[in-house]
Design a protein around this nucleic acid. Structure first.
Lengths: 342, 342
DNA sequence: GTGAAAGCGCTAACAC
DNA sequence: GTGTTAGCGCTTTCAC
């Protein structure tokens, strides 16, 4: 029956063990040079008293909290919840806890999670920005350990862990071209050019690059813009494409959720996948494997992204400063499944 | 251009503003009785120096971190990521941060998150236990603010926020009976009786209760057990049911993911939903609305669960102790969609 | 090897 | 209303 939290302090332990607080501290921090006898007495006292370190005190003294903040747009988006899970696991492995902050696609919140970094609650930040503007980046202009995730490369002096969006999209497009497709619709794509460097823009560019490379003409009609990137948007897109009698022999949905909707709607309309139309996605979210047909997609290896991000932010924390700008590209891979076999 | 973290302390601010640290503290904590003049001088000094409170120091002194730990089995399961998102939002609203801990269906980890509670990193715990055994509950026998989530009602002296699993399952079964179904298969159900009080067991019981109530015979054959609760398990189940030539006019999948798999596999096998077979789920996960056909399901109002849990744990934190055992049942509701219209 | 003691930056009790 | 000050519990020199 544990007492109220830990009223028990290091001093109590020291007293009970007949040693000094310094020795208890040494013991707790695995410092060498200590007689086995003392080690044992301290251990037993700790056990007996049910002592637990007070991390607030430790944090104050050491200036570290062993907490990382993970700021992402929305946990309800599978991509991010899977990424978060991987970040949690990786951080845990390295002895860090994670405060998750969901910015719910809200610029204010993104700025908040940046602004609050000075308050020492967390040692570093892994930020997946979505709404920040160029004008906001000066807020990141400090020495706090930071890793930026995703493709939005602001002029921020910090390591970026990026997905090879353009390359992934190009590879996937190439795969479809190799399979003989010539009318590849891009659901969730962005027509024309925008200054904004969203994943949509970049993936669309990758698609166009691959077409160009293969000498296949680019038809803007095939770019089907959507409101969001959920499965409903994918289904809506297909509905429109069919209504407009758009000709296409493949659909490249720019993320897996869109692809789910595409798959469902095509099936509902009696279009055979992959015989009549091939369908591919991007993100390799777990559920995609279980679609019928299972979804061919680009795997951005979230595990590796998480590992790289956590590793970098911890390295910065332990070295004491923000690392300079850099771009770490996570490996990318095509996963061939039934919706577009190899 | 911010300096390295905040070397700037309250003393610096006090000095710059020509006041005492106490006044700065008062200002920061919105304490009353303070001339507007002083208020302004402090504000401007803070602004000028770019001061930010050091939360470690504040935490040590106040004994509070304004951090809650949320311990759940797995963020990759949609139900939990949606719940987590709601918990995050609710906590944020009330000025608390959330450390998310994913126990990955691992008993050790569950115990860890409980054990580490004494170390003052977080003020309270919202725990969704899955693997804990009766033998472990003594670990929860302390005064630390705690809310237990889900149906596993151990003999723990703390508030429980529970889903009305039995009632929800019974209501849904009743709906199917009302629609004329008499052979309702339960995918993910648990045959026979087990001491264990998992959601599966309880939801199955709710189903049986409804049958009994309606005077419909219970056929154990209709209980289709599955390995897990993912969509693949749902699809597998249907495959087996069809192979075994099981007769059924409805499928009650005990969660939405199972239901997705059921929907897909039935469709793949040319079984019309809902004309031939009705399909319903449990959890009302966002994606379910976009299935084709859209999924009728039980809505456990995660938002409300999150609200109740956060509210209770914060109330405990602010009142200074663990609240006694209690059971707060979150409201439940059937959501009628195409897979089984009303 | 071990211990004494000086803070880390803040809050709150109390004095003015 | 405002200032002084004593710790919160720990880590870390620096003596011994």
């Amino acid at each position: 029956m544990a007492r109220r939290s830990s009223r028990i302090t290091m001093a109590d332990v020291a007293h009970a063990a007949g040693v000094s607080v310094a020795s208890v501290s040494n013991y707790l921090n695995n410092r060498p040079y200590m007689t086995d006898d003392m080690r044992e007495r301290i251990a037993s006292a700790i056990e007996r008293l049910g002592y637990q370190v007070n991390s607030s005190a430790r944090n104050l003294r050491s200036g570290r909290t062993h907490l990382i903040k993970l700021s992402i747009p929305d946990l309800k988006q599978v991509y991010f919840s899977e990424l978060a899970e991987d970040v949690l696991a990786e951080a845990r492995l390295r002895g860090y806890g994670v405060i998750v902050e969901s910015t719910t696609n809200n610029r204010e919140r993104e700025l908040d999670s940046v602004n609050s970094m000075g308050s020492h609650t967390t040692d570093g930040l892994i930020l997946s920005p979505l709404m920040m503007r160029q004008a906001d980046v000066h807020l990141l202009d400090n020495d706090i350990p930071l890793v930026v995730l995703g493709e939005r490369l602001f002029d921020v002096s910090a390591p970026h862990v990026v997905i090879a969006n353009a390359r992934g999209a190009a590879m996937m497009t190439q795969h479809l071209l190799d399979a003989g497709c010539r009318r590849i619709a891009v659901v969730g794509g962005v027509r024309g050019t925008r200054s904004e460097q969203s994943s949509g823009v970049i993936r669309t560019q990758g698609y166009r690059d691959a077409l160009a490379q293969a000498g296949v003409a680019y038809d803007p009609q095939l770019i089907v813009e959507t409101d969001g990137w959920g499965s409903r948007d994918g289904a809506d897109a297909v509905r429109r494409m069919l209504a407009d009698q758009l000709e296409f022999d493949a659909v490249f949905a720019l993320n897996d959720c869109l692809a789910w909707g595409v798959l469902r709607q095509l099936r509902a309309c009696g279009v055979d996948v992959p015989a009549k139309v091939r369908v591919v996605g991007f993100d390799n979210v777990e559920e995609s494997e279980f679609m019928i047909p299972s979804l061919t997609t680009v795997d951005p290896s979230k595990r590796e992204i998480a590992r790289l991000a956590v590793e970098s932010v911890i390295q910065q924390i332990e070295s004491g400063t923000r690392a300079g700008a850099s771009m770490i590209e996570a490996p990318i891979e095509l996963v061939y499944r039934e919706s577009s076999p190899c």
